[in-house]
């Protein structure tokens, strides 16, 4: 369970990643392909756009952790709604890109590794666990994407791609 405090930790720590986001994306994929060289085949030759998508999606997820409580009952459009975006993202990963469910584990590992390097010594056990929980939750919703019965043409289509 991702607690409020953990959400705040994630948001804070992300600010430290932002200035180095491009490098972080480099490191992430380098690490991922170290862990699973066979996953290289899932991605295009030129990874530039892919890295942008990754950072964009992570930024979106973190931003969604950062809504003020006071705004809890505002109206939110589908492409700004984290659940829908992540669900659609997961569906694309499964149905379009053919990413198997077991890929979520190495991806999570690469993500944590990257954060560890990007954030340095502040990436302590607590922060690690907060990110791990957030990733676990996002991955869980992504895996549910195949069960999605929403209008498949819309939700989250703009918000990102493979990551």
């Amino acid at each position: 369970m991702l607690s409020q405090a953990e959400r705040e930790m994630v948001v804070r720590s992300w600010r430290l990643v932002v200035p180095i986001a491009d490098t972080a994306a480099d490191l992430f994929y380098r690490r991922l392909f170290e862990l699973r060289p066979d996953y290289r085949a899932y991605f295009p030759e030129d990874m530039t756009g892919q890295k942008k998508k990754l950072v964009h999606m992570l930024a979106f997820i973190v931003r969604s952790m950062d809504w003020p409580d006071s705004a809890w009952n505002d109206d939110v459009s589908p492409d700004e709604d984290l659940f829908l975006v992540v669900l659609a993202l997961g569906r694309r990963h499964t149905e379009i890109y053919g990413i198997p469910d077991e890929a979520y584990a190495p991806v999570g590992e690469a993500l944590l590794w990257t954060l560890d390097y990007g954030i340095g010594k502040d990436f302590d056990a607590q922060l690690r666990s907060a990110w791990a929980r957030l990733y676990g939750l996002v991955a869980r919703v992504m895996k549910m994407g195949v069960r999605s019965i929403a209008d498949r043409s819309k939700a989250g289509a703009q918000a990102g791609g493979r990551s």
């Binding site: 369970m1 991702l2 969604s64 809504w67 009952n73 109206d75 939110v76 589908p78 700004e80 709604d81 984290l82 659940f83 829908l84 992540v86 669900l87 939750l137 996002v138 869980r140 919703v141 549910m144 069960r147 999605s148 019965i149 929403a150 209008d151 939700a155």
Partner: peptide, 28 residues
């Protein structure tokens, strides 16, 4: 009311559902 997701509770129980639902920003 737009249906979004369906499944059985033996795969995802109430706890798991509620946890995922915390990612929803809109009324759901």
């Amino acid at each position: 009311r737009v249906p979004v997701l369906a499944g059985t509770l033996d795969e995802t129980d109430l706890e798991g559902l509620v946890e995922m639902m915390t990612l929803f920003r809109q009324l759901s």
